[in-house]
């Protein structure tokens, strides 16, 4: 089945281990009125490991299944097959009561901070709330811990008594981060945490995440469509296309020598402010296909310049090329053999 290529060659046991994760929804357009709904394969055999203390990034365009993967890990959507393990504990199939203590270890931050906060609650109280739910510490200690944490994510004491609508987007995202971190989670899952923010504020939050990682030894699963941010923040990256991981590897290596034609196009499509772009521009034809009607063979072949007959029939498996980078492409491997 899936090989272990998605984990780096180290002896460290992974904190989070995802194996052959699958999820399908009923949805899409019916062929006729009252006709049956199609099945959409949103996540189609995803495997990866997140090591303790590292930042693992998942990138891809909308509809590639990156957010669904996060939701499956957090039990916010139902997986149809596969396994998700936190250290030695299997997470899939657990009931709500078994999940409650686990929520302390797994916290998450989503894109829209206003949607994540209670509009009628002062921000300090919102950061205290998780401690109350998990019955940790005495009330006075809770207050002190929350205030300290808010301050360390960059919110001055004068702002602790405010309501979410009185804060800016960046400040709200800081509150959401503080609320996720107050439980000292082992893994923080961030799904597009900075996409709704202005450029200069994005950099503030990215720097905050970096310093939190250093200080707290936080493990991060960072999901984004923004390759430059993922490159900046993450140690290892997986690129998803239509429910599958098509390429994975150390962030710098993957972005400087992308092997999959999709990753190559994605990297070259990032608009640069520098005059000389390090990669020749590849403009793909067509758009990502709908997961309701995935093409046969490799999902990328209709847009791929290198597609061969084999690509139209068989789905390539993710295979390690020996450098820590793994690619799911028939043609990329041929390419590599010629190079080496």
């Amino acid at each position: 089945m899936m090989n272990i290529s998605t984990s780096p060659k180290t002896a460290t046991a992974p904190l989070l281990s995802v194996r052959d994760l699958r999820c399908s929804f009923k949805g899409g357009t019916r062929s006729r009125l009252f006709g049956p709904l199609k099945r959409i394969q949103a996540v189609n055999g995803v495997s990866f490991d997140v090591l303790p203390g590292e930042a693992f990034g998942i990138v891809g365009e909308s509809g590639c299944g990156k957010s669904t993967t996060a939701k499956l890990i957090l039990n916010m959507a139902n997986a149809s097959a596969g396994s998700v393990r936190l250290r030695d504990q299997e997470l899939l199939g657990l009931d709500d009561s078994a999940w409650k203590p686990l929520r302390r270890k797994l916290q998450y931050v989503f894109q829209d901070p206003l949607g994540a906060l209670d509009p009628r609650m002062r921000v300090l109280d919102q950061v205290i709330e998780p401690l109350c739910i998990h019955q940790l510490h005495a009330p006075a200690t809770r207050r002190r811990l929350a205030a300290e944490l808010l301050q360390s994510v960059g919110l001055q004491p004068g702002q602790h008594g405010k309501y979410p609508h009185e804060l800016s987007g960046g400040q709200r995202q800081r509150v959401v981060l503080a609320r996720a971190l107050i439980l000292q989670p082992e893994l923080l899952i961030c799904d597009e945490p900075i996409s709704a923010l202005d450029v200069s504020i994005q950099a503030q939050i990215v720097n905050l995440l970096q310093s939190l990682r250093r200080e707290l030894g936080l493990t991060l699963l960072f999901i984004s469509h923004d390759l430059s941010v993922v490159h900046h923040l993450c140690d290892r990256v997986a690129v998803m296309y239509l429910g599958r991981i098509v390429e994975t590897g150390p962030a710098r290596q993957l972005f400087s020598t992308p092997r999959h034609p999709y990753t190559q196009a994605l990297v070259s499509a990032i608009p640069h402010t520098a005059q000389a772009s390090p990669h020749a521009r590849i403009v793909l034809t067509g758009e990502p296909p709908s997961p309701a009607q995935p093409p046969d063979g490799c999902a990328f072949h209709p847009r791929c310049a290198m597609a061969s007959d084999r690509c139209r029939q068989d789905t390539p498996a993710l295979t390690d090329d020996g450098t820590g980078q793994a690619v799911a492409c028939f043609e990329a491997r041929l390419d590599l053999r010629e190079v080496s």
């Binding site: 800016s168 960046g170 400040q171 202005d198 450029v199 200069s200 504020i201 994005q202 950099a203 503030q204 990215v206 720097n207 970096q210 390759l227 430059s228 941010v229 490159h231 900046h232 923040l233 710098r252 972005f255 990297v267 990032i270 640069h272 402010t273 520098a274 772009s277 390090p278």
Partner: peptide, 24 residues
């Protein structure tokens, strides 16, 4: 300059982001 310095870039490796402090 602040805007440009707050963008992460693929072609630089160890450059830390320099966000503009404060708010609009």
């Amino acid at each position: 300059q602040g805007l440009l310095a707050s963008l992460p870039r693929l072609d630089s490796q160890d450059r830390s982001l320099k966000p503009i402090p404060g708010l609009v």
